[in-house]
Every structure is written in structure tokens, then in C-alpha cells.
Simulated assay, not measured.
Amino acid sequence: MDNDVGDPVIVTGFHASRTHKLTPGQKDANRVLAVGRAPVEHGFAHLKNWRPLTKLRTDPARATRLLRALLVLTNLEVNR
């Protein structure tokens, strides 16, 4: 895998249609992608439900620091 920051790559899944069924390898690739995507999607869902962020009216840099602090506290609580 090439980790070139100047040439980013977007990984997407395979799509089936009525006339084009997915091969077992494509199904496996979609499954691996879904496993990696699920924690990120759950994280965004939790962020949307955090009460301090619902009416946040501040500088984006300050919001980023607040978000990082909330994530640290959440991870501490989850790992406890």
C-alpha cells in the first residue's frame, strides 16, 4: 500500500445490478470495507447525540479542542 499524501486514494465498495452479480471476492471486499467503516459510522452517530455539540456556537478551532477532549473522556469511560 502506498501512503503518499500527495496522491490520496478513495476506497469504495463494489455494486451489483440485476445483470451483474458480485463475485465471492467482491463480496469479501465489501465485507472487509463494511467492518472498517462500522466503527467510524457509530462514532459519528454518537457525536450527533452529544448534548454539548447540539448548540455549539464557537470558533471551529475551539470546537475541535472540545471534541478531542470529549473523545478522550468517552474513550476513558468505555475502556473502564
Rank of each mutant, 00 (worst) to 15 (best):
D28H: 08
L22D: 05
V9W: 11
D28T: 07
T64S: 05
A29Y: 12
P60K: 00
L73P: 00
V35W: 03
V40K: 03
T19I: 02
D4F: 05
L76W: 07
T19Q: 14
V78I: 15
V72P: 01
K21P: 13
L47Y: 10
Q26T: 11
G6D: 15
A61F: 01
A38L: 05
V35L: 10
L76T: 09
L22E: 10
V5H: 10
V9L: 15
T74S: 09
V11Y: 14
N49Y: 05
G13M: 02
G6N: 13
V72G: 00
L70E: 06
L76G: 05
F44C: 08
T12L: 13
R31I: 02
H46E: 11
V11A: 15
V35I: 10
N30V: 01
V72D: 02
R80W: 04
K27P: 08
R18Q: 13
P52A: 03
A69T: 12
L66T: 05
R68G: 03
F14T: 08
R37T: 01
E77D: 08
P52G: 05
T64F: 06
R65I: 01
D59A: 03
V5W: 11
L76A: 09
F44M: 14
F44A: 07
N79K: 05
T12Q: 15
A61V: 03
P24N: 11
T64M: 12
R51T: 13
A34M: 04
G36H: 06
R31S: 10
F14D: 12
L70T: 01
L33W: 00
A29G: 04
R51P: 01
A16K: 15
H20C: 11
R51I: 10
L73Q: 00
R80H: 04
V72F: 10
P39M: 11
R80P: 09
F14P: 02
L71Q: 06
K55F: 09
R18G: 15
T74D: 10
R57F: 04
G25F: 03
T23W: 09
H42M: 13
T23V: 12
N3V: 09
V35E: 12
D4A: 12
K48F: 03
P24G: 09
P24M: 11
G6W: 09
P60H: 03
G43C: 10
R80T: 12
A34S: 14
A38Y: 07
R62G: 03
G25N: 10
R18C: 05
W50H: 06
N49Q: 15
S17H: 06
A34W: 00
G13R: 07
F14W: 14
G43P: 00
K48I: 01
T54L: 06
L73H: 04
D4Y: 11
A16H: 12
K27M: 14
G13S: 06
V32C: 05
R51E: 13
V35T: 06
N3F: 11
V78F: 14
G25R: 09
D28F: 07
E77R: 14
L53H: 02
A63S: 03
A63W: 00
D2S: 11
G13V: 04
K55R: 15
H15P: 08
D4R: 06
N75E: 05
D28A: 15
N3Y: 12
L67Y: 00
N30G: 07
T58F: 02
D7I: 04
N79D: 04
H15R: 15
V11M: 08
T64R: 11
A69D: 04
